[in-house]
């Protein structure tokens, strides 16, 4: 064959993601400087680490000899408290999130109500649970009530936001059809919106139940009740076998909850 290969270019480079060379290099250099500065600012106390590493090893091996019994009643009390906080806060959170989600849907709510609901949602989502818990403990005193209210506040923002997004995405066909029958606003929501949104709401609630349990394990650190306080105490006393038992219980409960809620969501689809 008489194809002259030499006529074709012998080199090819993939076009870069950022076409302006100066910008590409600039971003690279800045990232390198930042990384160097950030890693440089980590202070490692080698003496402390030398003490800690054997301790870490001891902790890791205690996962093979977890001690559920020496502080069994404390663990059970802590877990019960966590579970109680989880269910009550999820239930209350859903109850409050439904009107909030309706109010935060652009296609349903008048402008002022929309803005108010969006502001509540934004504040609930920006404030980390632990910060809210610190304030609630100051206001309501130590104990699971503060924790439960914290989780309620976090759940309602989470559920309401996703619910509002789902409502905003509903198909308009049924909306107009039901409205044209002369239904009242409540009937309209009940017939046209609820059927489209319900599976999403149930799914979100189950998902939030998981999250709330995981979070409830943390709130004890600032005195807002739950298993976290027990864990904190166990670690403070270097009782690693008890701490391992607590962590294993948490993992087990989380996995069971995740598995069951997965099954339920499957059934609902």
């Amino acid at each position: 064959m008489t194809i002259r290969m030499a006529e074709y270019p012998a080199a090819w480079r993939k076009p870069p993601l950022i076409s302006a060379a100066w910008l590409r290099w600039g971003i690279g250099v800045l990232a390198a400087i930042y990384l160097a500065a950030a890693i440089g600012s980590i202070e490692i106390n080698w003496a402390r680490l030398a003490v800690g590493l054997p301790r870490g090893w001891r902790f890791l091996s205690s996962f093979f000899t977890p001690d559920f019994f020496s502080h069994g009643d404390e663990i059970i009390a802590g877990l019960t408290e966590s579970l109680a906080m989880t269910v009550t806060s999820t239930a209350l959170g859903i109850l409050l999130a439904i009107p909030l989600g309706l109010g935060a849907a652009r296609n349903l709510a008048p402008r002022p109500i929309y803005l108010f609901c969006r502001a509540v949602i934004a504040s609930s989502r920006t404030l980390q649970e632990l910060i809210v818990a610190i304030f609630f403990v100051k206001m309501f005193g130590f104990g699971p009530l503060a924790g439960m209210l914290t989780l309620t506040f976090a759940s309602l923002g989470f559920i309401a936001k996703l619910l509002a997004e789902r409502i905003e995405a509903v198909e308009v066909g049924p909306l107009n059809a039901i409205r044209s029958t002369g239904a009242s606003w409540l009937q309209w929501v009940n017939y046209a919106i609820q059927p489209q949104v319900m599976p999403r709401l149930v799914g979100l609630s189950l998902y939030r139940l998981d999250i709330n349990f995981r979070e409830s394990a943390v709130l004890g650190i600032v005195g807002a009740g739950g298993i976290g306080a027990t864990l904190n105490t166990a670690l403070g006393r270097y009782e690693y076998s008890t701490a391992a038992a607590i962590l294993l219980s948490i993992i087990l409960i989380v996995l069971t909850a995740e598995y069951t809620s997965g099954l339920i969501r499957e059934r609902l689809r």
């Binding site: 074709y8 270019p9 012998a10 080199a11 993939k14 076009p15």
Partner: peptide, 26 residues
């Protein structure tokens, strides 16, 4: 790293030309 031998790249340009897609490489 997309560092293919020059002969392969020439070959690729040739085939693109042959199937009627010269200039589409990027």
């Amino acid at each position: 790293w997309r560092r293919f031998p020059p002969a392969d790249i020439q070959q690729a340009f040739h085939f693109l030309d042959r199937v009627g897609l010269a200039g589409f490489e990027n």
